[in-house]
Design a protein around this nucleic acid. Structure first.
Length: 819
RNA sequence: GCGAAAGUGGCGGAACUGGCAGACGCGCUGGACUUAGGAUCCAGUGGGCAACCGUGGGGGUUCGAAUCCCCCCUUUCGCACCA
């Protein structure tokens, strides 16, 4: 026996074995039953399970277990996001192969998860590093290539000098690598990209199908996609050509007093050719490059004149062209029209260099203090034929005008860029492309997949792609012409792997296809997806994109795979995230060792609602263990009574207790199923136990009291079972049940039984509580008022006053307004 | 700077649609049992002697506000020259 008063260790082992041997949580498609697909984000096998995982998976486990007891055919799988950098870094450091390191971590972490008793369909476990899995990554990649969705281009990329690889824009956080925070450099490399931008509009539009996603996640995605409506307009430059700009405020174009071009803009070379300012410009470009390489934060706006002018097609007048460090090559067209009177950035630049500021928008409220810049809307002035138009109308007319005259058009621009997936690393999915001198870039044949990662690789960390150093891998023959050819040596971003794993779970061992469509049609969509908020943009945009691609390929019927999302909050200790560097990590194993898995699960669910942050507390878990000990004692004391059979009516004490029981069943059910407030579900079970304990002696003393106590014990065990499954099984068995509790039916609540016959109505006088009266349920306002007048305290508050008004909320409150 | 969310006892948090603020747990105080108690059980626990006062601060709407509206402060998280 332990401190807890029950031998959790052997109880946990016993039931974990039982569940495994009886395949209790394995899932089979069954058209005769409604399905429920409960999914949690699979972990990266870093080595150990941490508290964030425990919380994430405990939340999912309660939901999955409850749904099973509610009669659903539940799919609740688990797997491993098993490719990625840390394995390779460990390989360099420890001279172990990434595969070995990964598999050892998986074994350890699987055992940890099993010790916490999560109800997973383990037979469906998958790992993305398995060639049988990543084969389908390659398959999908080739289909994307064939569809024109995967393409190669030389691009300026984010390069992490520490991880020695390229990072997607999404993986650059505040100028640093998302994994190691090393300052990211810019390099130009040939890369594979996926045309996620083709789906920008759908990704936005289909947000309407995601009503059960947290609002802020959708907002983050919208901001990330960054749709802007505006216009593109071409300014001509004598003997050079056109410079196209993008603007959302074409209504201010008459106020454009200069053009600002990114130093990286391809036209710069032509602009400088023969320009007297070429030397200064080149120096400026070099400076900007140096600054960008260092990723210096918020630089002041600077620039140099190119000595050339461009013609504003609306006014026909020339404006000087500047190179400016605040114009991004990656967004829009890499060039802007600068309107200092109506844009703060342009204003700052113009003020610095003494450029003219021409006001063309009159604010609706002329008294508005604009500090020299008015960025709002208004009526156009000094804008030729467009004078007097309101901004919005002017934008339409001016875009149409540009279109008519052939120098521009209305246009939509997105912040979202194509997804760069090439990684110069070993431990990822090989990109299944072949370079043939005769045929060019050719995909591997489908029947030759998977292109497997070669075994004999040296992990030196020296920089270039490890796969390029393996001749047996690198050298191949062209699938088209049969001549000698070279393989692509880059591997895929691991977000590719996790973009479709939820589909693989439905048929994880299938060899002939990535997934069985019948199974997909049965199990999908995912009914609830639970994971960390940190994936709000990356993973959760990619998997939406991927699903739309698969739909367009005819492989799935869905547009959105996950209609309901729960983002759980972080687990903190001392107010900050647990991390090795801070030295504030609490290891789940040490907790299960000391208090048991059930206490750990219960506490982590009780301490805060799932979507909020959770502050870890060792004291808190003691409270959870105490609660379990009390149920254990109660169950033990009730066990001998289970032979009793009820005869006749419940006694008054029993009736009262059963009322509380049914109120509790109602609340627990609702809190889990509709509100996802698992913390209050636990609280109401605790509340019920408090009532149960204090009433037990009185109840037992009356007729049928023993039956009432048995009823309470039985239902309480069922309610607790999703939270503390091992003890619940043990109690269930102790009280004489043969079928395991995990497969038992969730208790139904009886509204009639739950209803109070007598309610306490709060009586206020002028909004202040002056007393409480006991009334029969459903009493009228008049009856309640009469009762109130009889109460001495209330009567005192009413004495000498005139009742002006009464507000009555049946069964709850009576407010008497007096003067 | 922009955007979003949140501020409730000593602490984590409850209060679902505007209707008893502080459920439940931790901690604390006192007591019981005990060789012992960091076990268990019982009682108490927002502040104030009271009337009363209390949900970050100030206004407002309402019979009634933690909840709705306006202004301010603080914290957290996103985005951060996106034209």
């Amino acid at each position: 026996m332990s401190e807890a008063g029950y031998d959790f260790k052997s109880i946990e082992e016993k039931w974990q074995r039982y569940w495994r041997e009886h395949r209790v949580f394995e899932a089979e498609a069954d058209e005769s039953k409604p399905k429920y697909y409960c999914l949690e984000m699979f972990p990266y096998p870093s080595g150990r399970i941490h508290m964030g995982h425990v919380r994430n998976y405990a939340i999912g486990d309660v939901i999955a277990r409850l749904k099973r007891m509610r009669g659903f055919n539940v799919l609740h799988p688990m797997g491993w996001d098993a490719l990625g950098l840390p394995a390779e870094n460990a390989a360099i450091k420890n001279k172990t192969h990434p595969e070995k390191w990964t598999h050892e971590n998986i074994s350890h972490m699987r055992a940890q998860l099993q010790r916490i008793g999560f109800a997973y369909a383990w037979e469906r476990e998958l790992a993305t590093c398995d060639p049988a899995y990543y084969r389908w990554n390659q398959h999908f990649f080739i289909r994307m290539f064939n569809r024109g969705l995967a393409y190669r281009k030389g691009a300026q990329v984010n390069w992490c000098p520490r991880c020695l690889t390229v990072l997607a824009n999404e993986q650059v956080v505040a100028g640093g690598c998302w994994r190691c925070a090393t300052a990211v450099e810019q390099r130009v490399m040939e890369q594979w990209f996926l045309k996620i931008t083709d789906y920008a509009e759908q990704l936005l539009g289909d947000e309407s199908l995601l009503k059960l996603w947290p609002e802020h996640v959708l907002t983050m995605q919208e901001n990330w996609i960054g749709r802007s409506e505006g216009a593109r307009v071409r300014f001509s430059v004598e003997s050079i050509g056109d410079i196209e700009i993008f603007t959302t405020r074409v209504d201010t174009i008459y106020g454009a007093t200069f053009l600002a071009v990114s130093p990286q803009h391809p036209i710069v070379a032509k602009l400088l050719d023969g320009s007297p300012h070429a030397t200064e410009c080149r120096a400026f470009i070099a400076e900007c490059e140096a600054e960008r390489a260092q990723r210096r934060e918020v630089v002041e706006k600077r620039g140099v004149p190119t000595g050339r002018d461009a013609i504003n097609p609306f006014t026909g007048r020339p404006v000087p062209i500047y190179l400016a460090n605040y114009v991004l090559m990656e967004y829009g067209t890499g060039a802007i029209m600068a309107v200092p009177a109506h844009d703060e950035r342009d204003h700052e630049f113009a003020s610095r260099y003494g450029l003219p500021i021409t006001e063309v928008i009159a604010p609706p409220d002329s008294s508005a203090d604009t500090n020299g810049v008015y960025t709002g809307e208004g009526r156009l002035v000094s804008s030729g034929p467009f004078d007097g138009l309101p901004s919005q109308e002017a934008r339409q007319k001016m875009a149409a005008h540009a279109d008519d005259k052939g120098f521009g058009r209305a246009s939509i621009t997105y912040k979202l860029r194509d997804w760069g997936i090439s990684r110069q690393r070993y431990w990822g999915t090989p990109i299944p492309m072949i370079y043939c001198d005769a045929c060019g870039i050719v995909p591997e044949r489908f029947e030759n997949l998977p292109v497997k990662l070669p075994a004999g690789v040296e992990f030196t960390g020296s920089g270039s792609s490890p796969l390029g150093q393996v001749p047996e891998f690198l050298n191949t023959t062209c699938p088209t012409c049969g001549r000698a050819a070279r393989r692509e040596t880059d591997t895929m971003d691991t977000f590719f792997d996790s973009s479709w794993y939820f589909l693989r779970y439905v048929s994880p061992r299938l060899d002939s296809a990535p997934f069985d469509s019948r199974e997909v049609n049965y199990w999908l969509p995912v009914d609830i997806y639970i994971g960390g908020i940190e994936h709000a943009i990356l993973h959760l945009i990619y998997l939406r994109f991927f699903t739309k691609f698969l739909r367009d390929e005819g492989l799935v019927e869905l547009s959105e795979p996950i209609p309901k999302l729960l983002t759980q909050g972080m687990v903190t200790l001392g107010g900050s995230a647990m991390s090795k560097s801070r030295g504030n990590v609490v290891d789940p194993d040490s907790i299960t060792e000391k208090y048991g898995a059930d206490a750990l699960r219960l506490f982590i669910l009780f301490a805060a609602p799932p979507d909020k942050g959770l502050e870890w507390s060792e004291h808190g878990i003691e409270g959870a263990a105490r609660f379990l000990g009390r149920i254990h004692s109660f169950v033990a004391s009730t066990t001998p009574l289970f032979a009793c059979r009820r005869q006749g009516e419940w006694g008054p004490e029993s009736r009262e207790l059963l009322r509380k029981l049914h109120q509790t069943i109602k609340k627990v059910t609702r809190d889990i199923e509709s509100r996802l407030h698992l913390n209050t579900a636990v609280a109401s079970m605790m509340e019920f136990l408090n009532v149960l304990e204090s009433a037990a002696d009185r109840v037992r003393a009356e007729a049928n009291g023993a039956s009432a106590l048995c009823e309470c014990a039985e239902k309480l065990i069922l309610l607790a079972s999703p939270f503390t499954p091992h003890l619940a099984e043990e109690w269930w068995e102790l009280t004489g049940h043969s079928r395991c509790v995990a497969l038992s039916e969730w208790p139904a609540f009886d509204d009639e039984l739950a209803k109070e016959d007598v309610v306490e109505v709060v009586v206020q006088v002028n909004g202040r509580v002056r007393g409480r009266v006991l009334c029969p349920h459903g009493s009228t306002e008049t009856d309640t008022f009469s009762l109130s007048e009889a109460d001495p305290k209330i009567a005192a508050a009413l004495a000498g006053k005139t009742v002006v008004k009464r507000v009555y909320v049946p069964n709850k409150l009576l407010n008497i307004v007096v003067r």
